[in-house]
Design a protein around this nucleic acid. Structure first.
Length: 268
DNA sequence: ATGTCCAGACGATCTGGA
């Protein structure tokens, strides 16, 4: 019997109010099984649950007025929520993490802080948040079932992940401390799925709105799917749905995805 | 400093954030 494949995707929508038509068109065409969304930029009450249910997806979300906001969508089922918010700072009111079991996989959806300008309090918050993420990730990586940590990490891991590292050298996304935080996750045993599949190929997931960067393909790779060893063994393909970035009034990010062999229902 | 887009606000343009 052929193995069933699951598509897991992450998409920073940059405002779900402005981007709902794009989101629905993408769900219809690509039929991802598991979706993490970031930058909803909507209050908890304003999330378009009815339209997403109509498209065939159950959803959980953590909204926030105007900024941040994350959601998880599950094709044909409801996510089973396991966590809302990163542990380690009860005073952190920013909506940046939500986690659930979907189709037999534990999925954490994250929107890491941008951190600009650096140095400064926003950069300090970015590094503290990444340290909290690392502490939580350590509790997930060695679990005996498949786990994915997907989202906008706001980190360009290496100079090969950006069109112009010199032009961005002072940006928070390229700082050694930011890159070290990402590298520490990989050192725990997580696999960077896009790099695993594509080796040294140029891959971008974000093209800012300035200076016609999209038409000139001047991008950054900052949306990542990290897989624990159990799930990495099931990895079959990975990619970026660039056609979504080419739509009129597009988000500055494109959906980024992996295809994995579905876990067996009996478990292991 | 620049570039562009989103959401919100005592709004018919400004601001903060990215």
């Amino acid at each position: 019997m052929p193995a069933r494949l699951l598509k897991i995707a992450t998409y920073n929508v940059n405002g779900i109010g402005a981007r709902l038509p794009h989101l629905l068109a993408w769900l219809q065409r690509e039929q991802p099984d598991i979706v993490g969304l970031q930058e909803l930029k909507c209050s908890q009450d304003a999330f378009p649950q009815a339209a997403i249910a109509q498209a065939g997806y159950g959803a959980i979300w953590q909204g926030q007025r105007a900024w941040n906001g994350v959601a998880l969508l599950a094709r044909g089922q409801d996510p089973v929520e396991s966590r809302r918010g990163l542990p380690g700072d009860p005073g952190d009111g920013q909506s940046r993490y939500i986690e659930a079991a979907i189709h037999g996989i534990v999925v954490g959806c994250l929107y890491a802080p941008n951190g600009n300008p650096q140095p400064g309090p926003k950069f300090d918050y970015k590094l503290q948040w990444m340290a909290r993420l690392a502490r939580h990730a350590r509790t997930l990586v060695e679990l005996p079932h498949p786990v994915a940590l997907i989202g906008d990490y706001n980190v360009v891991p290496t100079d090969a992940d950006i069109y112009d590292p010199k032009g961005w050298r002072r940006d928070a996304l390229l700082q050694p401390q930011s890159r070290q935080a990402f590298a520490e996750l990989l050192a725990q045993g997580w696999t960077d799925a896009l790099r695993q599949v594509h080796g040294d190929a140029r891959i971008y997931t974000f093209w800012d709105y300035f200076r016609q960067h999209w038409p000139r393909d001047r991008g950054l790779r900052i949306d990542h799917l990290l897989l624990n060893p159990v799930l990495a063994a099931a990895l079959r393909d990975a990619g970026v749905d660039r056609w979504v970035r080419d739509l009129e009034k597009a988000s500055d990010h494109a959906p980024t995805w992996v295809q994995v062999q579905a876990p067996s229902r009996t478990g292991k």
